[in-house]
Structures are given as structure tokens and as C-alpha cells.
Design a protein around this nucleic acid. Structure first.
Lengths: 189, 189
DNA sequence: GAAATTAATAGACTGTAGTCTATTTTTAGT
DNA sequence: ACTAAAAATAGACTACAGTCTATTAATTTC
């Protein structure tokens, strides 16, 4: 059932062009200053074609940003033999570096998730949760190596860490390497 | 300069009715399902009258919620001789109790702040920052009493704590007394 | 080829936030 | 009373997200 036989195929170029146009326009003008119509026009495509692929503006932008994000929030490499606190600090510095570029867009996506529980679910499952798990895993390892007291709960600490930078992001506080150092030293010391 | 002489005075009842109608409708139907027009109509007032007092829907709702909030996020009382960790846990439990009622509204206000930097500024100055300072003050005192190691930075810890519950709030995680206990024990133990 | 199927397109339509304008109402000062 | 000032009201207007419909174009299966 539901096996598609026949029918006009998706135009792959249209999807690519939409993501590229979306990312470029949003970075240049800000999420709220870019209309769906403008993205479609810049991509040279009808507005409805966009809605054929993504349910909302937020879904499109998330996908566009997401594809660029793997480079930044890569899983920390455990096998370099370095301390977990160093790995955590590096990870945070990388994330903050990405947020210099897409932080405003991320803020807008977090806001969009508050209006739309469908988007909230996919944002959380595809973006938020995986990053939370990376840090939890790192903290579990830190307990194995004895860097982090076993009295701590890695999941709670992970929530504290993510929360801290969400809080800074949403309140437009500074997200720089000094803050990364602060977080790490207040968790590990 | 700017001294108002003459002119029709504000109708105080209109403002009161607007806040009451706004709070009631938003709690019943959710922020995004209540239009400005519906609030004005419920208050028996013209739509423009609302805009004469508040710049945006968010400003109105914030004020309406804020007036009910003092009861919940009251400054912890330092003079009861109890441990700071107990005071912090109680404070968090009170905040979470309020969020059972207005958590969805708060989520919507945080979202609104991401679209509107004017609202962001007043939300931060009037609502966010004062609560942040309460917890920072409590943590400073905890260092005085020796409950919290002096190696910690109270401002950073305050950010971690607030961040944790913003993160839970925005991701629709549980905000209950167990979470309050978790936070406190991972900060103090 | 013909039929069935699905994408692409164009454009009408709805609902809402916020702006703007013109008119009327209520007040203070003279 | 009269005037100036500012609030209240009614309603037009813009811009946008998202929905819906009808038409046309590109495919696969038979």
C-alpha cells in the first residue's frame, strides 16, 4: 500500500535551490525578514513547490542549517587520550563558533518550535536530543576516568550545560570561549 | 517638558479589563489561539485602545502574567536560619508550580522575545534578570555559609540553573519537585 | 500510445498583527 | 464658553503564513 507507481518525480534541483536560497537570505536578512514568497522567488520556483517538501518555513530552514551543522558539532573524539574536560571545552567552543553564524537563526527556530508542536517534535528529535546525548556520553566517560565525581548525574549536568547556553543564546548574552571555560570549570572543579 | 496638561485621561477600567480578559483567554485557549481582536472584544473595548497602552500582544500578556507572579517567585527569606540548598529547592519548586499554570504562556513570551528586540529588552529587564539575581544572591550567601565551594562562580551557577529550567520548559520536559532536587543536589554535592 | 499518478505552477482565499487615519469624547486651563 | 490636548472608537490598509483549487507537465505501467 502507498507504493508510488508512476507520477512526475521530484525536481531535485528545486529542493537544493530552495535550501540554498533560504540559507543565504536568512543569514543576510534574518529569519523574520524573509518571507516564504521571497525564498521561492529567489529559488526560481513556485511557492507551493516549497510546501510540497516542507510543512513550514521552520522545517525548511532547519534542514538548510542542519546540513551545515555537522561540521561544527561533530562528536568529540574520545580516542585522543585527552581529558574529558578539554574535550568538553573544545566541543562548546565549536558550538559557539557556529552560533556566531547561525545563532540568530537558531533563536528563531527555537521560537518557531514554541508555536508548532509538530516542528517542535522534529527539531527536538533531529537536532536537540542528539546534541544532548553527546554531552551526556562525554560526562559518563568523565565519571569512568574519575574526572567527574560519581555522585553527579550526567543527564542532569548535560541539561545544566545545554540550558546555560540556550539561556545565553535566547537572552543574547555572550557565547565565547571564556563562557565555555567558565562552564567547564564550574562543572569539574 | 512633556508635562501633560489637559487631555482625556486613561480609562483605568479599560486597562484592567484588558489584562483580565487577556489572562483568562490565554490560559484557557493558549497564547497563539487568542487574537488581539478577541481580547479587545472580551474586554469591551476598541482594539486601538489596547495598542494605546501596550506596543504588542506580548507586552500586554507579560504585564498580566507578571502581576500574578510575585506570589510565586518571592525572594527567598534568608532569615529563617535554614540551609541555602533548602531555600533554593523551595524556590525552584515554587517557580515550577507557577509554570504548571503559566508555563505555556511563558514559552510563548520567550518565543515572542525572539522576534521583537524591544520586547526582549523589557522582558529581560523586568522579568528574567531579577530572577537571575535572586538565585545569584542566594548562591553568594551559600558560599558565605560554606555550603558552596568558593571555587564556584555564583553567576555562572545561576546561569546553569536558570538555563536548565528554560531548557526543560522550552523542550516540554518535566518540571517537578524531583527535577528541583536533582538540580540542587548536582550543584551542592 | 493511453491511462493513471504525482509534481509544478498560478493564483484565489483566510486569518492575524500591527499601522494609520478620521472622528468623537473627555478633560484642564484660560 | 472656548481652546488645546489627548483618549476612545471605527474601520481601512499592508504584509505574511498557510490552505485550497484548477491546470499543466513529466513519469511509469499496461
Amino acid at each position: 500500500m502507498g507504493e508510488a507507481t508512476g507520477g512526475r518525480p521530484f525536481n531535485a534541483e528545486a529542493g537544493t535551490a530552495l535550501k540554498a536560497a533560504a540559507l543565504q537570505l536568512v543569514r543576510a536578512n534574518g529569519y523574520d525578514n524573509v518571507s516564504i514568497a521571497a525564498i521561492a522567488k529567489a529559488a526560481g520556483v513556485a511557492r507551493q513547490t516549497l510546501y510540497n517538501r516542507w510543512a513550514t518555513k521552520a522545517d525548511l530552514i532547519l534542514e538548510a542549517v542542519f546540513e551545515e551543522t555537522h561540521a561544527y558539532a561533530a562528536e568529540p573524539d574520545f580516542d585522543t587520550g585527552r581529558d574529558c574536560r578539554v574535550l568538553l571545552e573544545e566541543f562548546l567552543v565549536n558550538v559557539f563558533k557556529h552560533l556566531e553564524i547561525d545563532g540568530d537563526t537558531l533563536r528563531a527556530l527555537i521560537a518557531a518550535a514554541q508555536h508548532d508542536s509538530g516542528f517542535q517534535a522534529s527539531f527536538h528529535a533531529g537536532f536537540v536530543k542528539p546534541r544532548e546525548r553527546m554531552i551526556t556520553a562525554l560526562l559518563v566517560r568523565a565519571q569512568d576516568t574519575g574526572e567527574l565525581p560519581s555522585s553527579r548525574n550526567p543527564e542532569t549536568i548535560s541539561t545544566l550545560i545545554h540550558g546555560a547556553f540556550w539561556y545565553r543564546l535566547l537572552n543574547k548574552g555572550a557565547l565565547n570561549s571564556a563562557f565555555a571555560r567558565e562552564i567547564v570549570s564550574n562543572i569539574f572543579d
